[in-house]
Design a protein around this nucleic acid. Structure first.
Length: 856
RNA sequence: GCCCCAGUGGCGGAACUGGUAGACGCGGCAGACUCAAAAUCUGUUUCUCGCAAGGGAGUGGGGGUUCGAUUCCCUCCUGGGGCACCA
């Protein structure tokens, strides 16, 4: 009998209130259950939630609710990554305080998230811009200082000329600032760094143990850390007391050296430039050159002959020392020996300046006497030649020999070099965590003592001039030195916001504790069992958090190394893009599709060109507002669609048809339960002793679905879970009960369906659970268990191939004997026709899979 | 340039360690219900030859291993991502 349509507008808020009233999702203390810490990357409060958030939290909530149903004590918290530049930009544009802007946004977004019906423990909510959070971060900073993990470095930094702040290497994307997009300049500044390089080896090695991380992310981190084994060699300089140190991984090619090159930022270059105007002009030119891809691609190798000579350690040759634009100060020692025959850059340089090219690695099939390198450096393997005592050795043997000899001579050491740099954390910004340090003329650098924490941000700041408002503030920076009481000055820089997100997952374990974290709570909940977020954080946030955890371990706060045991990186939500006749981007709501598929603008009817589906972005106007979707279709529909169409790790294309389909399924499930209701036995009725064949078929479908969905959720194949639930719904929908036992099976099927759907569409599940006569919450119901006997089919369909071509399908008992299978296969008419006059050469039977008859 | 990943119907995608390619959804087509429409339900839907039974082709291209390849190997093409003057 027909029931009313399921009214999600009324039901969703009702169940949200029911969960809240029951405190269903507040994580309790350790009880007998195993724990599961499920976390999605916390959002930046930019203003409103977007579809990426919806996808992220739909997945996280699925995992959290599933784990709860499986009997885990679940921690599933939410917070706000609330410091950052957009708040200051808003302050400038709208004359509103960054704090005000941020807290307003948090209120809006919290409200939006609550309409999604997520199983979050809101009692643990934190915001990184709150002094109750950042005071602990300041404490940790001073602890890191004590532990020698913080350095103050005068260094060449990446300077964003638009945001007027320093950027970490990780924040320079293609030579441009990751936020402003402005070409990054080089600037020498004194700033605070975290000594992440001290952990480079460990951070790289431990990646192998992160088995539940995507290989891709592990590889990206590994490449980012960029370990390379080589040696540091010191060359004597003719006529000088000091030496020139270079880093190389190709010491086997030492006899191929024909010049030396140092970076324009090398101290020796600076020294020589002081009385050489031409050289200082050359250095200035180099620094003006950008670091973007295009510039580097086109840039010519340029050098300046300093007139100095380095002495070859083995044959005493004098090698010209150049200042060269392609040598990086930040890598190795900022100096190289040039071996043109075996390095393309060195070769380009040598050809430009007419320097000698000595091949010293000879390919297997080439002859030492005739092998020449002309346009292309030889980077392959071979035997060493033209190299005195190294002649005839392999590359590896030669490396060893050179290293051993140089070490004996005191001219070199074997070493490991990393691409990874220390993490510069000073930012010349207002809306961040103040660095708890005071500069005193007499005492030097003094950390702010614990009893003076937090160093709070002043409220009365102005944003009317460029640069750092904290520095402009009339009084804030002037303080008494905690050590001598004299006049001193606060550090006016704030911490990179990536520091805020490097430990928030620890704070969630004891969010209101007086200390940064409670060791017992952290010990119980950590590590995060399942972390979910976008790949864009593969190196930045995830690497910093791994470092931070190790640093905290050194300071005695935690006793583990890795914060995230399981990581899942979800794909983006994309949408088709539309461009109107005038070349202007149009919103999806501004276009319509004709019956024949052509797209035109609603206003004016002009032809619209459709672009490929891309990540939703305001600039391309291909954005769908989740709030509108939830209002129109409900949270369950939005969540179901997010999980349906694509594998979670891949991009998901948002389509109106897809959402409409998801919504139809919501209504169909509700209708199915309503229609069956009147004839069902009471909940918990005893299982009948016997079932009809139809009932057994249904029960088998039910238990296979339970088994399959469970496996798919565990493996993060949510789209397959969805497909299986559809299959089950089809089976239940097509079932017509004839007797009481059938109706028992029907209830079993409907209840299983509700419980399987519960982690994905929790409101609908609660509603149906209630309609089915249960007093408790579906959120508290245990996960259904598959009966193994019903999962396995008695009769299977076996394919029969003749010479690898499928010719017939046999219905046969599972685990039938080989003889029976062979006989049945050969008895088939189609098989006989395919064999024809030919004779059977071989008969392959793969039990329960396939039969292949080879004839000839 | 180096390193990864992906390529399957009209579309999104299934196919676990080599074993019945196309599950499930979207869209299409046909039908039922209806005065009609919407909604819903049923059937059908890789291409191709055939009335049918049945045959042929088919997982980006080419080659290989195998009784058997979407799956493994080589090679090329296309798309995406990461790194990049890293010595």
């Amino acid at each position: 009998m027909a029931r009313e349509r399921y009214n999600f507008r009324e039901a969703e808020p009702r169940w949200q209130k029911a969960w809240e009233a029951a405190g269903s999702f507040e994580a309790g203390p350790a009880d007998g259950r195993p724990k599961a810490y499920v976390l999605e990357m916390f959002p930046y409060p930019s203003g409103r939630i977007h579809m990426g958030h919806v996808r992220n939290y739909a997945m996280g909530d699925l995992v959290a609710r599933y784990k709860r149903a499986r009997g885990f004590n679940v921690l599933h918290p939410m917070g706000w990554d609330a410091f950052g530049l957009p708040a200051e930009n808003a302050a400038m544009a709208k004359k509103i305080h960054p704090g005000q802007w941020t807290y307003d946004n948090i209120a809006t977004m919290r409200g939006q998230l609550k309409t999604m019906g997520l199983s979050l423990d809101w009692s643990r909510e934190i915001a990184t811009c709150h002094p109750g959070y950042y005071r602990h971060q300041q404490k940790l900073f001073t602890e890191f200082m004590k532990a020698g993990l913080v350095d103050r470095k005068e260094a060449w930094v990446n300077w964003d000329p638009v945001d007027l702040t320093v950027l970490a290497n990780e924040q320079v994307v293609d030579g441009k600032g990751w936020r402003s997009g402005a070409p990054v300049e080089k600037k020498k500044l004194s700033q605070w760094v975290f000594r992440i390089t001290e952990f480079a080896d460990e951070l790289a090695d431990a990646l192998d143990g992160l088995e539940r991380w995507p290989d891709k992310v592990r590889l990206m981190q590994k490449n980012w850390i960029g370990r390379s084994e080589g040696m540091r060699m010191r060359f004597a300089l003719a006529g000088r007391q000091d030496e020139l140190e270079v880093f190389t991984t190709r010491h086997d090619t030492i006899f191929g050296a024909s010049f030396m090159a140092i970076s324009p930022e090398h101290p020796l270059a600076a020294e020589l430039a002081s009385d050489d105007p031409e050289l200082s002009g050359f250095i200035a030119d180099c620094q003006r050159m950008g670091t973007s891809e295009e510039v580097i691609e086109r840039a010519e190798k340029l050098g300046y002959d300093t007139g100095l000579f380095a002495i070859h350690p083995f044959d005493g040759r004098k090698l010209h020392v150049y200042v060269a634009n392609f040598v990086l100060m930040e890598y190795g020692s900022g100096a190289i020996f040039g071996c043109p025959a075996h390095d393309q850059r060195d070769l380009d340089f040598a050809r430009k300046y007419g320097l000698a090219i000595f091949p010293v690695v000879i390919p297997q099939d080439a002859d030492v006497a005739t092998f020449k390198v002309v346009d292309e450096a030889y980077k392959g393997d071979g035997r060493i030649g033209n190299s005195d005592f190294l002649d005839g050795m392999t590359v590896e043997e030669a490396k060893n020999e050179v290293a051993t000899r140089l070490e004996a001579m005191g001219r070199g050491t074997r070493t490991v070099n990393y691409r990874l740099r220390d993490w510069g954390v000073s930012r010349q910004r207002y809306w961040g965590c103040p660095i708890p340090v005071i500069h005193c003329g007499d005492c030097g650098i003094v950390p702010v003592p614990d009893d003076q924490l937090p160093v709070e941000l002043p409220q009365d700041v102005t944003f009317d001039k460029p640069g750092n408002p904290l520095d402009h503030h009339p009084t804030w920076k002037h303080v008494a030195c905690p050590s001598c009481g004299g006049d001193a000055r606060r550090d006016t820089d704030t911490l990179d916001t990536f520091v805020d997100s490097s430990w928030y997952f620890l704070r969630f374990c004891s969010p209101r504790d007086d200390a940064p974290m409670d060791k017992e709570a952290v010990g119980y909940w950590m590590p995060v069992d399942q972390y979910i977020g976008g790949v864009e954080h593969a190196v930045l946030h995830l690497l910093y958090s791994r470092f931070f955890t190790r640093a905290l371990k050194r300071c005695g706060y935690v006793d583990f190394d890795e914060p995230f045991a399981g990581l899942f990186t979800q794909g983006m939500v994309t949408h088709e893009t539309y461009k109107g006749p005038d070349g202007i981007w149009l919103e999806p709501s501004e276009v319509e599709r004709d019956a024949d598929g052509t797209v035109r603008a609603i206003a004016g009817g002009g032809a619209v060109s459709t672009g490929r589906s891309e990540k939703m972005s305001k600039s391309k106007k291909n954005v769908i507002d989740p709030e509108r979707i939830i209002a129109e279709y409900g949270a369950d529909t939005a969540r179901w669609f997010m999980l349906s169409d694509s594998p979670p790790e891949r991009d998901l294309e948002w389509t109106d048809a897809g959402v409409a389909g998801a919504h139809r399924f919501v209504q169909r499930l509700a209708r199915m339960v309503g229609d069956a209701l009147d004839d069902l036995p009471a909940p918990g009725s005893a299982m009948p002793g016997e079932f009809s064949e139809a009932a057994m078929t249904l029960r088998s479908a039910v238990h296979k679905a339970i088994d399959g969905v469970t496996g798919d959720i565990e493996a993060f194949h949510f789209n397959r879970s969805v497909a299986r639930i559809h299959e089950l719904a089809n089976a239940v929908g097509g079932f017509v009960p004839a007797d009481a036992a059938d109706r028992w099976a029907q209830r079993e099927a409907l209840e299983s369906l509700v419980l399987l759907v519960n982690p994905m569409m929790p409101h609908l599940a609660e509603e149906m659970w209630h309609v089915l006569g249960h007093a408790g919450l579906a959120a508290d119901a245990p996960w259904p268990v598959a009966d193994a006997a019903l999962v396995v089919e008695e009769t299977i369909t076996l394919g029969v191939q003749v010479n690898g071509k499928m010719r017939a399908k046999l219905a046969i008992a599972r685990d039938a004997s080989r003889e029976a299978v062979e006989a049945a296969a050969l008895a088939d008419d189609n098989v006989q026709r395919a064999i024809g006059e030919l004779s059977v050469r071989k008969l392959i039977v793969v039990p329960n899979k396939i039969v292949n008859i080879v004839v000839g």
